[in-house]
Design a protein around this nucleic acid. Structure first.
Length: 128
RNA sequence: UUGCUUCGUCGGACGGCCGCGCGGUAUUGCGCCGAAAGGUAUUACCGUGAGGAAAGUCCGGGCAUCGCAGGGCAGGGUAACUGAUAACGUCAGCCACGGGUAACCGUCGGGAAAGUGCAACAGAAAUAAACCGCCGUCCGUUUUGGGCGGUAAGGAUGGAAAGGCGAGGUAAGAGCUCACCCGCGACUAUGGUAACAUAGCCGCGCUGUAAACCCUACUUGAUGCAACACCGUAUUUCCGAUAAUUCCGGUUUGCCCGACCGCACGAAAGUGGGAAAUUGGGUGGCACACGAAAGUGGAGCUUCUCGGUGACGGGGAGCAAAGAUAGAUGGUCGUCGGUCGGAGUCAUCCGACAACAGAACCCGGCUUAUAGACGGAGCAAUAAA
RNA sequence: GGCGCCAUGGCCAAGUGGUAAGGCACAGGUCUGCAAAACCUCUAUCCCCCGGUUCAAAUCCGGGUGGCGCCU
């Protein structure tokens, strides 16, 4: 993924506790301004702000196959959204799945995610 | 044809568009690093990319580390026999026992005639026996009876009660004796590599339990890739005593023995060097191995061939890059195929559904989950020839 | 990824081959005008599930399910 993935457990906890959260039909999204964004920008060879993205799919929603598929579908939907509209940069974004994602199509999840990002005011204004 | 048994194979296919990981190749421009060569990122192209169970982690190995593992005790594991294998608790064949009409299937299947323990309740009695009954004798006697002794045929209990049945025998009875049968053990003969089977002869009649302790035979060092090696970050602690072959402490298992280790300079503060723990990071291990290559080796895959009942083994040929790290191997659309339901002019049309499940150092097995499709071999019954 | 532990009534639990202790809670009763306390009584057919050994299994053996812990 282009974005740096969130690995640390404490960042997940922080985003869940302090971030803005909005839930849709298939997924729920929490966002929080990244305190380390400026440091990451300097470390980045392109010197650009990046979003750090984490996916959370709990174990009770299925075995490894079902959870891998859920994560793939979310990533696919995210990729399509980024191609159409630019998001704000320098945020922590955690996307949690909901049980309804079993059997969903990536186009459904894409529509859901686009609606949630609109509600969370995550679209950059400078680009249409 | 119907009903089964068993072995094996597959686990949707093709195409368009958009993507992901890894490896390789490429150059012009752009960004960054560099004096440069070049590197990195990006882009383009090529190659490649989940399973039969990848799972459970139940066994066995490779590999790595520990003091290079040396001895003893303890502890763990396995259990008919013969073989296969790198090894195994796996596999093959075979024996015994049990199930099935049969094909075939199942079995942790050594020793209870070495010793110890346990066998609740019931029952008179549970590894040795007299409650009732039967018989004899004595006492008492109107009647019921009581004492002593013999007796395991009959009764009731139990998972299990001293082999079964008949005859002789007896006061009554009893393998007490005899014939036949059953079971166990030793010996001999025959067959078999063997477990074992069959026959003969002699002896015996012995409860069950070893997935209770135990005995016998064989076997077993421990820990696991989060091992381990290297690079760099921060903090803390430690690196004996003594005259001494002695004490103390430490070093991968529980105990004992054996073995090994406990730094240098300085008067001191300290300095240098080293080690350990904790916090969190990177690279290797790690994608058949070694090697520059040719090649060599091996427990890899496919196929042919020879040997073997078979597991498997010998030989030949060809092929050998999945290697991620919050974790790639996909998304979407279309066509065809599968199953089910409905309609139907028997051409077809419409709708729905798609098993179990995701590599994480690598192999050999076992176990468990699994929609459906295909193929081979065999059995029983029925029908026809 | 690897290593280990546990599962007994609604809750905490003892029990290591012979018919499952105890405490709390619930319910009923005695007592009281009513309640509390006290006392008495009741609750395990499947001891997480499936097989096996045994006359007999919560217990022993094998397989599975669920939960928990440790190692970077």
């Amino acid at each position: 993924m282009k974005e740096i993935a969130i690995k640390e457990n404490h960042l997940y906890n922080k985003t869940f506790k302090r971030g803005n959260r909005f839930a849709g039909r298939y997924v729920a999204v929490s966002v929080l301004r990244d305190y380390a964004a400026r440091r990451l920008m300097l470390a980045n060879p392109q010197k650009a702000y990046v979003n750090r993205i984490g996916l959370s799919v709990p174990k009770r929603e299925g075995g490894a196959v079902a959870r891998n598929r859920a994560k793939r579908i979310i990533r696919e939907a995210l990729r399509h959204i980024e191609k159409k509209r630019a998001l704000k940069r320098g945020w922590l974004i955690v996307i949690s799945s909901r049980p309804t994602i079993i059997g969903a199509k990536s186009t459904d999840v894409e529509r859901d995610l686009a609606y949630i990002f609109g509600k969370l005011d995550m679209y950059a204004e400078d680009r249409a």
